[in-house]
């Protein structure tokens, strides 16, 4: 059992956003976890990116789903009621294009029974393609987003950060200063894949986010590095597929972990990792 502020996690495993739907499937798996993060929710509905949205890379996955979701109002009305009986921490991942988007999202979700919000400032697939910038690459913007959310909600806040072209210790510190309760490191890394036969990019939106075992050493580095610089509970994320990977993330300085790509390979991966840990954690 792990307690951070007012929130208790029955074990350190959280299922990562975008890899376990909205929390309304495989409920028997979700209930055994320390928490589950929904797919990213935005203010307005998003149709998502053109297909193909996913391709396999060596020991990993490149994806560009593009935050397909029904929008916060529909999510609140249609999906959340189905999640009331979940016996785990329900964490809603929120994503926007501006600090005011996040503020409105937090406000809309304030009166719900969800346990925490994960502020997603690090999705590489909704980057403004004209300047390749995401909020998570600018610590001033990160500060603004997190403090806007903090003003609107008393809920537990996780800020999910990127390590793409930015020193994550800077954005970690900014989110701590703005009042986050934990940070999650790392979101997917920039990636592109081409089909050598056709000469064309594989993904419909050309670029994507890389995840899976291929990024584990870098994720561990980021956790270890930020843990040495910023005093805040860290949720380690990147390349976890078994119990040893969890232990490595904890050794690097994580308090909790998020399991992502492994769920795509096996929707029961969370259970197997937990079994692998036995009573050791």
């Amino acid at each position: 059992m792990i307690k951070i502020k007012n929130l208790t996690f029955k074990n350190p495993i959280i299922l990562a956003s975008g890899t376990f739907g909205f929390g309304d499937k495989f409920i028997e798996v979700a209930n055994k976890m320390g928490g589950i993060v929904t797919k990213g929710i935005t203010l307005k509905p998003r149709a998502g990116n053109p297909v193909p949205r996913i391709c396999e890379t060596p020991a990993g996955i490149l994806n560009s789903v593009g935050l397909e979701n029904p929008g916060v109002d529909k999510f609140k009305k249609d999906t959340l009621p189905k999640l009331n009986s979940l016996k785990t921490n329900l964490i809603v991942n929120i994503a926007g294009n501006s600090p005011s988007d996040y503020e409105k999202l937090a406000e809309t979700l304030q009166d719900t029974k969800i346990d925490a919000l994960e502020i997603n400032v690090s999705c590489p697939n909704i980057t403004d393609k004209s300047n390749f910038q995401m909020i998570g690459q600018n610590s001033k913007l990160v500060y603004q987003v997190v403090s806007n959310v903090r003003k609107k909600t008393k809920k537990f806040l996780i800020t999910k950060l990127t390590a793409n072209f930015i020193d994550p210790a800077l954005t970690a510190q900014a989110s701590v200063d703005a009042g986050t309760d934990a940070i999650c490191l790392i979101n997917t890394l920039y990636g592109v894949a081409f089909d050598a036969k056709t000469g064309k990019p594989i993904l419909g939106s050309i670029t994507g986010g890389l995840s899976g075992p291929a990024i584990k050493p870098f994720a561990l580095y980021c956790v270890w590095y930020v843990a040495s610089k910023v005093k805040i509970p860290i949720i380690g994320c990147g390349g976890i597929v078994n119990a040893n990977d969890v232990k490595e993330h904890l050794l690097a300085g994580s308090k909790l972990v998020e399991v992502g790509s492994a769920n795509l390979r096996n929707p029961y991966a969370g259970l197997e990792i937990l079994k692998g840990l036995g009573g050791q954690i």
Binding site: T19, G21, K25, F26, R53, V65, L264
Partner: peptide
């Protein structure tokens, strides 16, 4: 990706 509706990778 998953084949079972949780990753939204196919469409």
């Amino acid at each position: 990706g998953c084949g079972c509706g949780i990753c939204f990778g196919c469409g």
